[in-house]
Deep mutational scan, measured.
Amino acid sequence: MASQGTKRSYEQMETDGERQNATEIRASVGKMIGGIGRFYIQMCTELKLSDYEGRLIQNSLTIERMVLSAFDERRNKYLEEHPSAGKDPKKTGGPIYRRVNGKWMRELILYDKEEIRRIWRQANNGDDATAGLTHMMIWHSNLNDATYQRTRALVRTGMDPRMCSLMQGSTLPRRSGAAGAAVKGVGTMVMELVRMIKRGINDRNFWRGENGRKTRIAYERMCNILKGKFQTAAQKAMMDQVRESRNPGNAEFEDLTFLARSALILRGSVAHKSCLPACVYGPAVASGYDFEREGYSLVGIDPFRLLQNSQVYSLIRPNENPAHKSQLVWMACHSAAFEDLRVLSFIKGTKVLPRGKLSTRGVQIASNENMETMESSTLELRSRYWAIRTRSGGNTNQQRASAGQISIQPTFSVQRNLPFDRTTIMAAFNGNTEGRTSDMRTEIIRMMESARPEDVSFQGRGVFELSDEKAASPIVPSFDMSNEGSYFFGDNAEEYDN
């Protein structure tokens, strides 16, 4: 783990906690998980779902989305002020799938948001429990990260689609708070800032007046979040320049895209947490497990152990491969979309394939898809080993990566060399080191050039047997250095459309 220093740990961010010791953190995270579980059980009762239907990941996603929508204050306010045809701002819903006479049927349900809020609060001892809501947002974000390569979004903001390893959390809503900021990748933060800068260039009043003052505060806050992700002084200094700019424009845009590229080699610290679907927490609570009393951590053995003992089902389209669908969801559960496939294969105990080789589309089923041909199958979400999630980018030494994705962002704290394609990355730096950030740029390029592919990161860190909950005997895996390590390699994943 990167030293926490003055930073709060993510469990504290996750639970809005002030400084807590490890036991208190485990208890408050457990409380959050228990609340999600209780809410899910109650919703299944309301909807009269069978046990099997309640364990269907598509039903879980609909129920999670309903509660997130019920608590989305800004959108609710907007919907009330701008009524649109056929949208009731006070209601929320989605597809629920039921097994009827041996076939899967889709039923569109509609609930009062007020009623959903009441059920959620009741499951969370009367609190709004925003930490639990954020947790579900991060699960949705991790699922998107594993399912889609955001080529269009990258290109629109002047970045290269091969930089997708920097895009963790790119679909997280803005209201996801400190826990959300911690899991956002460098590219995601750059993209958010670039969008602001572009608006400022096109709209003279963007930075002016009372609204402009708020915009400015948001801009500086985002700059500080991004600065905190960088691990070298030169990158941090460049972020200070971007933040202090009187009138952010093209120079800042250039600096930010430069920094994003540099992060492929001088990786930023991005938190990883295993956020599971509500249909995993519900049955665990129903079986009598007391998360608050037992304590829970999002970055240790607990999620692995929970998945070892969970039964989750998914709808499967006619030509999809259930094992591939399982891999997709497994990666999402562990926030591992940008991790090295060699490491993932070792931990999972079966070969993890790149996205383009998977015969599976996303987990969600569109409303126009034919239910007649839908089957369902068990998702295999178990693992051979477990490993500690990392909050750091690993040290800054790398190795060759593949054509589709030119770097990785480690999820697990496991000893290995970190793949990246130096030639491709360095070719993108057209040696432009003039301007006010020239000395920093020169320094950053120097550090990137001296990074050695064969150097090892996370020295001495290994994986653990599932029986080793105290992480007492690390097993340090050895990897084939020459092997392909990137998930979005030469990829044809669908595009994420909101």
Rank of each mutant, 00 (worst) to 15 (best):
R65D: 08
E495I: 04
N483E: 07
R216H: 06
N59L: 01
Y219C: 10
K214E: 13
T6F: 00
P322D: 08
C164R: 05
D145V: 12
M191R: 07
K325N: 10
S450T: 09
G490S: 00
L264P: 09
Q327I: 08
G249L: 04
G5W: 01
E192T: 07
Y10N: 08
D340I: 02
G288W: 11
E320Y: 06
A2W: 03
N21W: 14
R216E: 10
D439S: 05
S165Q: 00
P410Q: 04
T437N: 15
E494K: 10
E339Q: 11
K227L: 00
R361P: 04
Y296Q: 02
S84R: 12
E495T: 04
N498Y: 15
S392D: 02
T15G: 00
G460V: 04
P95A: 09
D491S: 08
T360P: 04
R8E: 02
I444L: 14
N125I: 14
G187E: 12
H324G: 04
A131L: 00
D497C: 00
M136A: 01
F304L: 13
W207Y: 09
R55Y: 03
Q364H: 11
N498W: 03
E339T: 01
D497Y: 15
I36W: 12
I36E: 10
Q12A: 07
R213C: 04
D497R: 00
F429I: 07
N397K: 10
S69A: 15
R422T: 11
T134R: 00
R400S: 12
I197A: 04
E81I: 14
R152E: 01
R175W: 11
E46R: 06
N59F: 02
A2E: 11
V414C: 12
Y52Q: 02
R38V: 06
T130L: 13
C333S: 12
D491W: 06
E210Q: 09
R267W: 09
S50D: 14
L143F: 12
D480S: 04
F420C: 15
V194Y: 02
H82L: 10
Y148W: 09
R195K: 13
V280S: 08
A179L: 07
D421T: 05
R204G: 04
E24Q: 11
V100E: 12
F253M: 06
E114N: 14
S478T: 11
S377Q: 05
S9H: 15
E114C: 11
E469I: 07
Q459Y: 03
M238S: 02
S377G: 06
W104N: 14
M426Q: 03
T442G: 15
D480M: 08
Q231W: 08
R162M: 13
N368T: 15
Q12N: 10
T373D: 06
T437K: 12
R26I: 09
I347T: 13
R19Q: 06
Q4F: 15
S287N: 12
E254I: 06
P83Q: 12
G282Y: 00
R121Q: 03
G34N: 12
K470W: 13
M481T: 10
N498S: 01
Q235C: 04
A85V: 07
M136F: 14
V242C: 14
L226T: 14
L306I: 15
I116S: 00
Y487N: 08
Q241C: 04
F429K: 00
F253C: 07
N21F: 14
M159E: 02
T171E: 08
V414Q: 08
G295F: 11
K273I: 02
M1D: 13
D468N: 12
T130W: 12
G86D: 12
N211W: 03
E339A: 04
A181K: 05
I347A: 09
G94M: 08
I57S: 04
E469L: 02
E375I: 06
E372S: 06
T423W: 04
D16K: 00
T6G: 00
T134P: 00
T45F: 07
G169F: 04
Y281G: 00
E339D: 14
Y289P: 07
F39E: 01
G268R: 05
T257W: 05
N432A: 08
I408G: 00
D255W: 04
T215K: 13
G356Q: 03
S383Y: 06
Y148E: 05
R317P: 01
V285R: 00
A427W: 04
S69N: 08
Q4L: 13
E465T: 04
S245N: 12
A387L: 00
T390Y: 13
R293W: 13
Q398L: 03
Q311T: 14
Y78V: 06
E495S: 09
I225W: 06
E372G: 12
L381T: 15
A271G: 15
Q415F: 02
Q4D: 00
E114T: 12
A146R: 00
E53D: 11
M105I: 15
T423V: 05
V280L: 11
F420Y: 12
M32H: 12
M159N: 00
L47E: 14
P453V: 14
S367N: 11
H140Q: 14
